[in-house]
Design a protein around this nucleic acid. Structure first.
Lengths: 234, 234, 234, 234
DNA sequence: AATGAATGAGCTTTCATTCAT
DNA sequence: CATGAATGAAAGCTCATTCAT
């Protein structure tokens, strides 16, 4: 029941700055929380720190998220969003070979997830799953399961079309996923405090990983390694 | 409270048992701590819990480890142990083909590390590295670096002998390591609270992963997949 | 958000309503505060709740009352009002016997105070007096003392006229007051959450209490018990 | 599973002081909490204050009581204890007249409850019942109900023996109880911060109240007023 | 005047650490 | 050596109060 606002006097705009901030707050807080949770873990991150990084006071944090745990859940949910439907559509329209398709999937995963802050969520879940079983199962349903199915469909297509040999699909899915998970974990742990000696160039890794996945260590190098511009969906 | 029925000071026997326990203490504490740190993370593990699981009182824990952080460091150190020299020797004496050698290395890794509690250490490091940079770099020096070099040597052997094609060694090493790291993380996070639908059989995964690593998705299935009993290797 | 359909500044009518509300505000706030303070105590009542119940925002509350404590004081002051002079006049004009006078006083107390929300103030004072000594002594001066004197005068009249026997006046006053205080406390505490088994009918209690006060447990029931309509008294 | 203690070396005694303190702690804390809760109410009492008054630190309080609310509940329970069975037995053996019996009951109530710190519990319950409905109903079952029945039995005896006239028992019980409740409330609120002008001498009040209850304002003073030594149970 | 977003002091509760026994 | 009662710093959370709009 808000009292009617009279727009005659030019209040319309003046209300705006604060309003805009109010709408931006949750996002700023979630971003700050993601950073810190990824960096230090849930327990070691103090609520006040999150608030400070978002440029607000402790109290404000609790205005938007009822508790630290709710904040955690929100961080996970926020960064999950059904990217999968969009993705699946893209792949359904894919007309190239299945090796190209797999390569495309892995590269665009890197660009859209691995490379971004969203990758921190995986680190977070891996580190904290046991402390938040409820969230963990939510994550499984929303991320892991759809991800598996997406990869599985690619592999099935390859097998159907005679491009891939027949193998245990369930575990093959893990073989495709493993290097991605690894990359995210590495980036947010060792990678974040490693000396240059352990420097890894993720897209080089991804590229070669695709190559190996397709042709193996004993195979002969294929043209696939020469990476086509990522956006040139064939 | 009945009076204790022990004559005045016949400690001989009981002293002995206690003596034995005394020497076992640190080990029991470290084992308990490993379990709990892996399960819940460093911050969420309470010192008292560790003590309780080791069957001693809170005070005793601090008798052996000056602080919770020292306990953490000790846990990491304890579970690292230079298994690498022994391992390297084993591989130096290896006479089979390099694909066989790689398969052997990965399978024995699974048996000696992946399958055991020691795998928890990796999960721990990945989760906590940024909170314990000192320990993390120690871990890098003692585990990651030697591990890399071991794998690297195998790959070099394969290339030298013409069994593997030429590729960027540094990143190929990561491709070998990634599924192992992934397996440990998975086992100690999602795997520990996953519904049966995500059940993964690690040795099936390892076996197929070796196969894929060698021959790729497009290769033809090789004999290597029929896994010889793990212990029958030279 | 449709644009407001008000022409530029036709505030005339709406201003008026707001004006009226503005003057009602403090009263609405005090009423809401009385309810909540009585129900939950001073400390457990949140300023925002008071505001909400009065239909205004938190900020507005502090526009009218500088602090929660001031609000409390205002609530007490507001609900005390010198009903005593009016009351005393009434009794001065009383022409019946003193037992009738006492009965009348107690019954009209029940109707004018005990039965109404004002009774909550006593509960409030009893519960919070030690946290608000300043207010407590104000309450004593404005309520307790005049109340005592009023009762005392009745008793004195009874003694003078030979209707009551001689006794320690100060403590006799308490004997008259006690059941009234009790009734208010009971109603606002146990009575507010008691099962039916403790249901008490206040006017039955009052009636019988008057009877007992006059004639005691050992006396014979007097006509006084047949209660005349309360308002038919002079 | 405590390790056996060897009493040969004279440890038996040395353990004692701390042990004794440990056993005394809960009691000391409850006493401190009772005082403060009665004085300031539940919400306005800080846990640290309670601890300080009991001579321990904040942390220690939570070693014995899991939360402030549990402490509150323990305070109420602790001070309730089935004093009623003992009391009832006493009255069953009573051989005097029922007026004497009632007088005895009220006076011994004053000595055993009203006069002691236990009276604070009633003030506490009256003030906080609405905030602790669970505790309130516990209090009703354990204190109010038995108390009512005890009084009721006395009144019934009086009526049966023709010493009291017939009246509505349920409300008569309240008439007996009211001055006692009043006394406790008064003592712990106004009484605790009143100027001397409101000084009330509780046993004088009790004595005269008994007299009034028995004979009423219009009755003639009985001998009962000359109060016999309280312990001389007739 | 009214609003409600923002603040931060203050309180409860936890837990690593100490130390008397 | 071992214990576990005691401690108090630190963290989560609440809510009276402020102030830009």
């Amino acid at each position: 029941m808000p009292l009617p606002k009279f727009p005659c006097c030019p209040l319309a705009e003046s209300q705006a700055k604060r309003e805009r901030r109010k709408e931006a707050r949750p996002g700023e807080l979630l971003a700050a929380a993601l950073d810190l949770f990824v960096e230090k873990g849930f327990a070691a991150t103090r609520a006040e720190e999150v608030a400070a990084r978002a440029g607000v006071s402790k109290g404000t944090l609790f205005l938007y998220f009822g508790s630290k745990e709710e904040l955690f859940k929100a961080v996970v949910r926020e960064n999950i969003s059904g990217r999968f439907t969009e993705w699946e559509a893209e792949l359904n329209n894919f007309t190239g070979t299945t090796p190209e398709m797999l390569a495309y999937a892995m590269r665009s995963w890197w660009e859209r997830v691995g490379m971004t802050k969203a990758s921190g969520i995986t680190k977070l879940m891996m580190s904290e799953a046991r402390n938040f079983p409820e969230i963990a199962s939510f994550y499984q349903a929303e991320v892991i399961l759809p991800g598996h199915q997406l990869i599985r469909r690619i592999l099935e297509r390859g097998i159907e079309r005679g491009e891939f040999r027949v193998l245990d699909l369930d575990h093959a899915v893990y073989s495709v996923i493993a290097p991605m998970i690894f990359l995210m974990m590495w980036k947010h742990s060792v990678g974040a405090c490693a000396p240059a000696s352990f420097d890894m160039q993720p897209d080089l890794f991804i590229t070669q990983q695709i190559e190996l996945l397709l042709n193996g260590l004993t195979g002969k190098a294929e043209r696939a390694v020469t990476r086509p511009p990522l956006s040139s969906q064939p």
